[in-house]
């Protein structure tokens, strides 16, 4: 399936883009993250939450084809 992924904050600096669309044949969030960790070397050092269809999910959640977001915490104030 074709999946759109949005990157926020520091994550976007690692991936060098705020959004991308890719063809993915895996079925779980964890599998998608594994693929992204291979594609982006520094991603595994970063802290972030994952959302699917604008709702927080965990690694065991099934991919639905809806938009994924990688959301890091912000400290600044």
């Amino acid at each position: 399936m074709r999946i759109t992924i949005k990157y926020f904050g520091q994550i976007a600096e690692v991936t060098k883009t705020e959004e991308e669309s890719l063809e993915f044949s895996g079925s779980l969030i964890s599998e998608l993250l594994e693929t992204l960790n291979v594609k982006y070397n520094n991603l595994k050092n970063k802290d972030f939450q994952v959302a699917q269809n604008y709702e927080l999910v965990d690694e065991s959640t099934k991919l639905t084809g809806q938009e994924i977001a990688l959301l890091p915490p912000f400290a600044g104030g």
Binding site: Q10, N45, D47, Q49, L56, P73, F74, A75, G76, G77
Partner: peptide, 20 residues
Amino acid sequence: CLFPNPPKKDAVPNCSEIGV
């Protein structure tokens, strides 16, 4: 409930280090 634990030390800088 959003971010259960703080990130690893020094993982996320603040404005004086990164700009805003």
